[in-house]
Write a protein that binds this DNA or RNA. Sequence first.
DNA 1: GGTAAACTGAAAGCAACCTTAAATTTCTGA
DNA 2: TCAGAAATTTAAGGTTGCTTTCAGTTTACC
Lengths: 225, 225
Amino acid sequence: MKILIIEDERLLADSLCTLLEGKGFDVEAVYDGETGREYAMLGIYDLLILDVMMPGLDGYQVARQVRTARCSTPILMLTAKSGVEDRIEGLNAGADYYLTKPFDSRELLACIHALLRRQGAQVDEMTFGNTALDLGTSTLICGEKSIRLSAKEFDVARLLFQSRDRNLSKEAILARVWGYDSNAVENHVEVYVGFLRKKLTAIGSDVRIVSVRRLGYHLEVLMEC
Amino acid sequence: MKILIIEDERLLADSLCTLLEGKGFDVEAVYDGETGREYAMLGIYDLLILDVMMPGLDGYQVARQVRTARCSTPILMLTAKSGVEDRIEGLNAGADYYLTKPFDSRELLACIHALLRRQGAQVDEMTFGNTALDLGTSTLICGEKSIRLSAKEFDVARLLFQSRDRNLSKEAILARVWGYDSNAVENHVEVYVGFLRKKLTAIGSDVRIVSVRRLGYHLEVLMEC
DNA sequence: GGTAAACTGAAAGCAACCTTAAATTTCTGA
DNA sequence: TCAGAAATTTAAGGTTGCTTTCAGTTTACC
């Protein structure tokens, strides 16, 4: 998670860096609006923390220019200006959140998490080995390659990716995918596991669906020999 | 744009309704947390405005339960509680913005626009592949060519352009375009997807509406062979 | 080596989806 | 207000490809 801080007060910028780096973020700081705008437009950041009052290009202008350039990185605007007018101007300039100084560091972190959460809500996926199951597009993804799953294939895959390396019985899969009272038989599961295995190898995944006699299936990462 | 207000003070709820309806939003209000949670989970709203202090289920609990149910509708939390702790709790419960009463109506509108903007519901246009959906004129644009959409066609198109390559179930389209309590059937969606496909090819778009059996529809850019 | 479990491929069945066209409702301009 | 156009709904029939079935083969374990 890369965060860019645009803040001319070095002391505050530095303490923010320390705080966020301590929380595991990858942080960069710049100390004026011009530079901030240039960095922000690289589009490589997951979040911008932007001060309003800066010499030269101020925060509102930076936000407006970043948005005009169709860069949609979330912006957390941070400022001593606490007037309603200022907050409105900030939000309308393209900011996603307006936080007034002085602020509580826990509140800042909660804001950051809220913004990143929304950012990440776009793609919901489960990963195992080098492979991801995308819940939004119902596809298996491995590096460049990806392959779409049918509805039933997806249901089975989701159960397996949930259980990961823990065993999942055929009865459990039957009950949850076909329904407890359906007249589906265990061979259905076998056929669908076959489908999934084919698709996993097709995209070059290192994930294997291992069957354990009488106990069911679980995922494993293929070891190189 | 459908907004759900969850607020037990009827006076405030009603004045919010009036304000937002005046701005062209489609607003519904409910007056307790239980009902609010149920309505919110329908997943048919573009935004929730949620009061914290309510008898029974409070705003924090509603937010938490809605998020637990994997419902990602943006939440604007609105409350008289102004303490830092409260703001942190609200954000961590799943809110996207925390606004303290009393608030300026222009600030509220700025927040709403900021949240909807991030949601992907741009005010001007939404693009996918070589094609744009103009929200002002409700037309599909591809290079020189453009074609006008009817009201329902536009509603369906907007949902698809919002979801982009993520699956959108027919159920969800039905609920959000025809209303969850209408007696519309899935064939309506099929017919309208047919209309949109015809119009997309008519303007030479490289965007395809792909159907995934049992899971719904999503957009894809046609690959050259 | 025998047995039970698991796997595979091919073909049939069927639900989901698409298309079309006509009927109905809503909108629009004179 | 009314006629005509546009939009929406309804319904039937065609098509697709997911799902199921099943028989034959392979694998694992005793």
